[in-house]
């Protein structure tokens, strides 16, 4: 592994969260590799927003994410103790959950925020404050680590996809075309 990383870089990994419309929660759509957060937003647009709809994107370096599945939490009994520095200032953490086993193209969804000194503390608080009954996966992300696209980006980054209707399958009338051909072709 170290051998290949000295020969090449594919850049660090960033996780992307997409908000379809104002008022809807951000959902994790997948990851891109990028040299920094700004490029992660641009790459994220190209990879995940070739089609509508998107109003806002968040990008966060994967190394800032605390991820735990329900099975992991059950097996670990208690979360690992952390060394919390005495003067650690509380900061805001975004809480994400996966609550369904249904087929989906998205993973965890933003459900709210908590203030805590560490990510583990944030997870413990989140388990108390949010509905934790049917949660299969938790993600805890410090707000300070999230790069957010701006309102001004909407027009240049996300709106062009709206006009590219030829990317949509419903643009093609092949089903009715074939029906018509079969109806008029003597078998």
């Amino acid at each position: 592994m170290s051998d290949s990383s000295t020969r090449d870089t594919q850049w660090p990994r960033f996780e992307l969260f997409q908000q379809e419309r104002p008022g809807k929660p951000h959902v994790n759509v997948g990851s891109v590799h990028a040299p920094d957060g700004e490029m992660a937003l641009l790459n994220g647009r190209d990879v995940f927003v070739r089609r509508p709809e998107c109003h806002n994107l968040w990008a966060v370096s994967a190394r800032h994410i605390l991820a735990k599945t329900a099975a992991e939490l059950a097996a670990e009994e208690a979360l690992p103790d952390e060394l919390v520095p005495d003067e650690a200032a509380p900061q805001l953490y975004r809480i994400f959950q996966k609550t369904s086993q249904r087929r989906s193209m998205n993973y965890v969804t933003h459900v709210g925020d908590v203030e805590a000194r560490t990510a583990v503390e944030a997870l413990e608080l989140a388990q108390e404050r949010f509905d934790a009954a049917n949660v299969f996966v938790w993600w805890i992300v410090p707000v300070a680590a999230i790069l957010v696209s701006s309102e001004g980006d909407v027009e240049s980054m996300f709106q062009p996809a709206q006009g590219k209707t030829y990317r949509q399958p419903q643009e093609y009338r092949t089903f009715t075309q074939m029906q018509e051909i079969k109806r008029t072709t003597p078998s």
Binding site: G30, M105, Q168, P169, R173, T174
Partner: peptide, 19 residues
């Protein structure tokens, strides 16, 4: 999840070819 995302887009690929 990758496959659900891909299938939605492949449907456009198939139809443009069929057309």
């Amino acid at each position: 999840r990758a496959m659900v995302r891909i299938c939605a887009e492949e449907s456009f690929h198939m139809k443009q070819g069929k057309e």
